[in-house]
Nucleic acid binder design. Structure first.
Lengths: 338, 338
DNA sequence: ACTGGCACTCGCGGACCGGGAGTGCCAAAC
DNA sequence: GTTTGGCACTCCCGGTCCGCGAGTGCCAGT
């Protein structure tokens, strides 16, 4: 593959992204200083089309990149353009004003949406990789407790516990003490065993109650691997030419399905710093025209993913830079709470 | 205003809502058994138009209701049609499976969206009207605490507290004990005074720390009146004919602005069981074509609002019934946790 | 007061058409 | 052999035109 052919592809991608219209040979020849004539560009275009990097919407129209074309662009041509110093400062300031973990996540997702003008998705720090900092039991009614679990990533989980029998305040305190002794400091991955032991530690009269509690605890740390995800910037879907009305519906629906969102974020290879999935690389029919850019974040190791989602025809260098920068800053913030 | 004229208006509203097309005199005369001819209906229509209840999109087209027309329909003509027994059972079952307050809210908002095929909005139980059940302090780093507040409505609030000096574990325990003694059982409205007293109760060495804590506590109970709101069913905006593409954008944007959402929900007259705001009654330019149906909910007294939002051209009887039923069930559920 | 008849209005969809952008190919030039 | 200018061809896009049909307002008759 010729060097100049690559330049032609880059020109087509860049122009198409900015104008949203098929780009013709003449435009390429004069807007980008390739030093060749339109006719030459035409020959290269014919080659690129043959090779599957670009295509014509219809005869006698300009060319637009295919998913394969974008892929090549991202892999070999896109020099990511870092954020400006001012932008970086703004990101930093905005994130460091967060008042709790919820707020960190909320601010992050808004920031991403605003920087990239796309739909942003942020996953809460995964429970699996954190450990228990504190358990709190509060009685709501004589036969109903609320269990609150706080993890060292600052996440708070709450659940109701239905009790088989009435429970005195003293009993609540005892259960709380025991549960904390058993679980404090334990990584969630190791928690199930400790929870199982819990039942044996209590007085026989409390057995039934303790096992109800244990069941809920178990659900909290294990079954509820259904991770929480937040979304922002849905309005960006309506940006001129981002998506035609018809294809918006399924995307809006997907944004309310945690399963789909997790799939989009989670399929990311955890090792990679940053993943770009273009069009059908998402393996989801509704996202055939959609690109997802994701990055892992976390203090040291990856505890969650964040990303943005937009039309395949997006500003890759800018988007990639933004996602990477935000992921980095969020990781820093989390690091400070270790 | 003639009785028959009202019937004609009802016919126009009902037909327009179901077909989404301007309705003509002939259709009204034959679809609804008024016992008069099309010509008579035409005369009535002329009157209704004169009076501002209906209008023609253009000459020689059928009529569509105006906001004023819908208002009259809602006030005097709409017999709300209650949910079927099966629906009621389903609602009840779905809501009673909730595992915590978050889950109640999440399920509620989804339920509303699904029942009404509209965008649903649910406000978390307001902090102002609940009281403190428990405070928990967890040290994250030597100079950083996490404050977790649990209210008797089951809501959990968390905040970071930056400390002026390092704090021992014992000190954390003492602060926690004092804070709980001061605040437990207090309605949030009375909390500020109790918080102020807190500083005077601690040992002089802890003064600075206690006041940092007090400041955050105060923010938590007061300043953070910015209430939390959740949304679901955004995809319903794309339902055929619900909104034309152009007007969707500002609505999607508004759905991410808590301030606007609170305005939509909160302007509801708290005393009214159910509020319907049609078109410009919302006093928001972007919602001139939008109707918001809201209801208060809560155990006994109103602690929050919920509602749905859709085109003025909506199924009022069905929507109103659904919102009312869901609000009622949620109130029941909350009642059980008293 | 209601009804049938009738002339009139006007939006909508389809057919038609010219301009223009873009292409592929070819023969000549570097 | 690569590049280039020329040229014929394709086909989308936007505008115009037109006939149909739904719906109306009015009027005269019951």
């Amino acid at each position: 593959m010729d060097d100049r052919k690559l330049e032609v592809l880059r020109a087509i991608v860049e122009d198409y992204v900015s104008t949203q219209e098929p780009v013709g040979s003449k435009a390429v020849a004069q807007r980008h200083t390739l030093g060749v004539s339109a006719a030459t560009v035409r020959n290269d275009m014919a080659y690129l089309e043959e090779a599957g990097y670009i295509q014509q919407p219809h005869t006698s129209a300009g060319r637009i990149p295919t998913a394969k074309g974008y892929r090549l662009f991202v892999d070999r041509l896109g020099k990511i353009k870092p954020l400006s110093a001012a932008e970086r400062r703004a990101v930093h300031r905005f994130l460091s004003e967060a008042i709790d973990l919820d707020d960190v996540v909320t601010r992050t997702v808004r920031l991403l949406a605003q920087l990239t003008h796309q739909v942003a998705v942020v996953q809460y720090p995964s429970l699996n990789r954190s450990s228990v900092r504190h358990l709190e039991l509060v009685s709501l009614t004589p036969t109903r407790l609320m269990l609150v679990m706080i993890t060292d990533t600052g996440r708070v989980e709450q659940r109701y516990v239905e009790l088989p029998a009435e429970l005195s305040e003293d009993d609540v305190l005892e259960l709380r003490r025991l549960a904390n002794e058993q679980l404090q400091g334990k990584p969630l991955a190791d928690a199930p065993r400790a929870i199982a032991d819990l039942v044996d530690l209590v007085r026989p009269e409390l057995h039934a109650t303790a096992s109800a509690l244990a069941r809920v605890l178990l659900e909290t740390v294990v079954a509820r691997t259904e991770e929480r995800v937040v979304v922002a910037g849905a309005a960006n879907l309506t940006r001129a030419g981002n998506f035609f009305a018809g294809s918006m519906r399924p995307i809006l629906e997907a944004l309310e399905e945690e399963v789909v969102l997790m799939q989009l974020l989670g399929r990311a290879d955890s090792n990679a710093l940053l993943t770009v999935r273009i069009g059908d690389e998402n393996h989801l029919d509704d996202f055939r025209e959609t690109t997802v850019v994701t990055a892992g974040y976390g203090p040291g190791s990856v505890v969650g993913h964040m990303g943005v989602l937009g039309p395949t025809r997006m500003d890759y260098p800018g988007t990639i830079a933004a996602v990477r920068a935000v992921a980095r800053y969020v990781s820093e913030i989390l690091e400070q709470n270790r």
